[in-house]
């Protein structure tokens, strides 16, 4: 289960950064970038928090 949370965490960091790269290339609106970054932020803190809890218990 911990591996799953870590994978989601890693993907959320990609989701956090990739939209700004696409925006830099001029292929996404800033509002969309902000929305995706917020989703990525929530995913990151939830997944890494849960992974941390699992590792603390384990």
């Amino acid at each position: 289960m911990r591996i799953l949370w870590r994978t989601i965490g890693g993907l959320s960091l990609v989701l956090l950064t990739a939209p700004s790269v696409v925006y830099l290339a001029g292929r996404m609106s800033l509002e969309t970038v902000k929305g995706l970054m917020l989703i990525a932020t929530i995913l990151w803190f939830v997944s890494s928090g849960l992974a941390f809890l699992k590792s603390s218990k384990g």
């Binding site: 956090l16 700004s20 790269v21 925006y23 830099l24 970038v33 970054m37 932020t41 941390f52």
Partner: peptide, 20 residues
């Protein structure tokens, strides 16, 4: 937990602002 996320948010500040 916050550090990797924070570092990347700083990076996005730069990428977004260069486009702007």
């Amino acid at each position: 937990i916050a550090v990797p996320w924070m570092v990347l948010v700083f990076l996005t500040f730069g990428l977004i602002t260069v486009r702007r």
